[in-house]
Nucleic acid binder design. Structure first.
Length: 267
DNA sequence: GACGATGTTGGCAC
DNA sequence: GGTGCCAACATCGT
């Protein structure tokens, strides 16, 4: 679910309300989502003031008056804002409950691949991220492509660019007309330029539509995204290509289901 | 009921 | 540095 556009949408849907709030208390119930002592985490957060909420790659960075709370949604994580907690709003999949001085913030995550972590300074996982795809210059992007790796694997590598996942990697490669198994270092300047623009275009459009709701993704207000209606290849295996009519193919690349048009995307 | 696939990441072997 | 395989977990489709 949550790649850059979804995380950006979540951040935009919580930032204004959370900034300036105080965490009165919190409760955590998953040893996977919150590794280490959950009681100590809750203790650290009690009384902390939220300064700002921002996105970096697929991470949600919550700056506190002391330290930083970092949230990664994994595959199925959701952050939900609630006015008041009433019966039925938490389930067995609610693994984080934040009581604020105004309202509540809930973290749901059925598969528990997400993480909620506090760090005194900048979180180490975030420090290893590559540049933001919407901020990097073409020259820097071009330079970073000089690597011996398949382009799809590279786009999924968060140290190369931060924020692309399986959906937007496939959609960007289709928009650029590039086969997912193309060697990154073999791309010509012109094709690299097409890919750079394709990534920016796809991500920007997806953010405008509130991200992609594949199964149950929603923002913090519980609203779905609409970019899934704009997918050209992801999840469309066997259906005709919007451009040439050939059936979209699905193969395995870097252990991920990879969708592409055999005619429009060349190596 | 079993099996495989699912938006992510990290560790391991090679 | 690169790839492939497996792991974490719950749910859904075949």
């Amino acid at each position: 679910m949550p790649e850059l556009p979804e995380v950006e949408t979540v951040v935009r849907s919580v930032a204004a309300h959370l900034a300036g709030r105080t965490i009165v208390s919190s409760r955590f119930t998953s040893r996977f989502v919150t590794p280490g002592s959950r009681a100590r985490l809750a203790q650290r957060l009690a009384g902390r003031r939220i300064e700002s909420v921002k996105r970096r790659g697929k991470f949600i960075i919550i700056a506190l008056d002391q330290g930083t709370l970092t949230v990664h949604l994994g595959m199925t994580g959701k952050l939900l804002l609630e006015k008041l907690l009433v019966d039925g709003e938490t389930t067995e999949h609610t693994h984080g409950v934040f009581t604020l001085d105004d309202g509540m913030l809930l973290y749901h995550d059925p598969r528990q691949f997400g993480r909620i972590e506090w760090s005194p300074g900048a979180p180490p996982r975030v420090a290893r991220l590559g540049p933001e795809p919407l901020e990097i210059s073409f020259d820097e992007f071009r330079a970073r492509l000089r690597r011996k790796a398949g382009i799809k694997a590279l786009l999924l590598n968060q140290a190369f660019l931060a924020g692309l996942g399986n959906i937007y990697a496939d959609e960007s490669l289709f928009a650029a007309g590039i086969h997912p198994l193309t060697h990154a270092s073999k791309l010509t300047d012109a094709r690299a330029q097409k890919l750079y623009q394709a990534i920016r275009g796809v991500l920007t459009h997806a953010i405008q539509l509130g991200g992609s709701s594949i199964s149950d993704y929603v923002n913090a207000q519980g609203e779905r995204g609409w970019f899934q209606a704009e997918h050209r290849v992801y999840g469309r295996q066997g259906q005709p290509c919007a451009n040439c009519g050939r059936p979209i193919r699905k193969i395995l690349v870097a252990q991920r289901g990879t969708h592409y048009c055999p005619r429009c995307q060349k190596k």
